[in-house]
Simulated scan of single mutants.
Amino acid sequence: MSGCEGCASASPDGTCTSSTGCDKPEDQKLKRTLGRIKHKIVVMSGKGGVGKSTVAANIAVALSLAGKKVGLLDVDVHGPSVPRLLSLKGQQPHIGDQVMEPVPWSKNLSVMSLGFLLQDDRQAVIWRGPVKMGLIKQFVEDVMWGDLDFLIVDCPPGTGDEPLSTLQTLGPTAMAVIVTTPQGVAVDDVRRSVSFVGEVGNRVLGIVENMSGFACPDCGKVHYIFKTGGGEELAKESGVQFLGRIPLDPAVAESGDEGFPFMKVHRDTATGKAMEQIIAPILALPDPPKA
């Protein structure tokens, strides 16, 4: 790992642009935190309503069930949904002197979200960009993540403050998993996410096509009632990996509402197998070289 990775003075290639070097205590603290995380994966989309948080939560759960040490960070400031998806609503992290302990979901999965810090989940968060940027950096460097195989970050839709701050904080080795639905109106917006990641200086790990076909709860088969293939076409056009497609499955919505991750209770279904196909290339990522 570059000595400047994650530093506020780092350029997209990880080199230092500061005239005074990287001696700030906060930069050193961030560097130490990132040095204990093997893989940083940001789940994002240019379009809202594509099931991005559900995909992020189930990727994190599946990796943890595979024996990996995983952190799940929810940086959707205005609509944090991870606490509900994992049945962690009402939980609070332990906050000490300049450190926070993430909320455990299991021995292998720890979670942090602004939703844990709001006294009322009906409370609107009305923050400008600099405040959100500061929170994201704090959630990375001040949370006691420990040694992780994967840090999965759930970003809000678009290419605004949150995904930009997240990628800049995590550094150039962070990779993006981009979620879309097959429809052209979604693919058009998601195409901008692909170019955004490249312009910031990061790599797209792959594209997921969500809500592709309908998983019939009666016969167990996937029926392609609506358009399919938009995400795969975008991957080919962009020269990035197509991770796979996930059908529209009523059980996915039900498990999310009830707080029981789909990949824990339904992994043997057609939808579960589709998600496993998406997770396989993530599990196969080689460990980065030691600094």
Rank of each mutant, 00 (worst) to 15 (best):
residue 254 E to L: 12
residue 117 L to F: 07
residue 148 L to Y: 00
residue 117 L to A: 06
residue 160 G to H: 01
residue 290 K to F: 10
residue 143 V to F: 01
residue 35 G to P: 01
residue 175 M to P: 02
residue 155 C to H: 09
residue 103 V to I: 12
residue 120 D to K: 06
residue 223 H to W: 00
residue 63 L to H: 01
residue 278 I to E: 08
residue 141 E to S: 03
residue 109 L to R: 03
residue 198 G to I: 04
residue 244 G to L: 03
residue 135 L to F: 14
residue 76 D to G: 07
residue 280 A to S: 08
residue 116 F to H: 00
residue 99 V to F: 12
residue 158 G to E: 10
residue 18 S to Y: 09
residue 216 C to T: 00
residue 98 Q to W: 08
residue 153 V to L: 04
residue 60 A to E: 05
residue 281 P to F: 02
residue 2 S to V: 11
residue 176 A to H: 02
residue 205 L to H: 13
residue 113 S to Q: 06
residue 192 R to Q: 11
residue 133 M to R: 07
residue 246 I to V: 15
residue 168 Q to G: 00
residue 284 A to E: 14
residue 156 P to C: 07
residue 69 K to H: 12
residue 88 L to G: 08
residue 113 S to G: 03
residue 55 V to M: 03
residue 191 R to Y: 08
residue 49 G to N: 08
residue 284 A to D: 14
residue 181 T to G: 07
residue 211 M to A: 11
residue 268 D to Q: 15
residue 275 M to D: 05
residue 123 Q to Y: 07
residue 233 E to V: 07
residue 227 K to A: 12
residue 27 D to H: 03
residue 288 P to C: 02
residue 164 L to S: 04
residue 101 E to S: 14
residue 105 W to E: 01
residue 120 D to N: 14
residue 279 I to L: 10
residue 22 C to L: 00
residue 231 G to K: 03
residue 39 H to Q: 00
residue 144 M to K: 15
residue 94 H to I: 15
residue 54 T to N: 10
residue 156 P to I: 02
residue 286 P to T: 13
residue 75 V to T: 14
residue 50 V to N: 10
residue 112 M to L: 06
residue 82 V to L: 11
residue 163 P to N: 10
residue 288 P to Y: 07
residue 166 T to V: 13
residue 96 G to F: 12
residue 103 V to G: 13
residue 211 M to I: 11
residue 14 G to I: 03
residue 174 A to R: 01
residue 193 S to G: 15
residue 226 F to V: 06
residue 29 K to Y: 01
residue 207 I to T: 09
residue 116 F to C: 02
residue 148 L to R: 01
residue 193 S to L: 07
residue 111 V to M: 05
residue 167 L to W: 00
residue 69 K to C: 00
residue 25 P to S: 10
residue 37 I to A: 09
residue 241 Q to I: 04
residue 178 I to E: 05
residue 248 L to F: 14
residue 245 R to A: 15
residue 91 Q to A: 15
residue 270 A to N: 03
residue 171 G to Y: 11
residue 33 T to G: 07
residue 163 P to T: 07
residue 133 M to E: 14
residue 240 V to C: 08
residue 66 A to M: 04
residue 38 K to H: 13
residue 49 G to Y: 09
residue 178 I to P: 00
residue 104 P to G: 04
residue 37 I to M: 05
residue 236 K to C: 07
residue 272 G to C: 04
residue 205 L to M: 07
residue 233 E to S: 13
residue 78 H to S: 10
residue 269 T to F: 04
residue 192 R to M: 12
residue 150 F to C: 04
residue 164 L to Q: 02
residue 263 M to W: 09
residue 229 G to D: 09
residue 223 H to A: 12
residue 79 G to R: 13
residue 187 V to R: 11
residue 268 D to K: 14
residue 61 V to N: 07
residue 174 A to P: 03
residue 127 W to I: 09
residue 217 P to Y: 10
residue 90 G to K: 02
residue 58 N to P: 12
residue 174 A to N: 00
residue 24 K to M: 06
residue 250 P to W: 08
residue 247 P to A: 04
residue 160 G to Q: 03
residue 197 V to I: 11
residue 148 L to G: 02
residue 245 R to K: 12
residue 10 A to L: 12
residue 66 A to Q: 06
residue 196 F to T: 09
residue 188 D to F: 01
residue 12 P to A: 06
residue 189 D to T: 08
residue 248 L to Y: 02
residue 89 K to G: 03
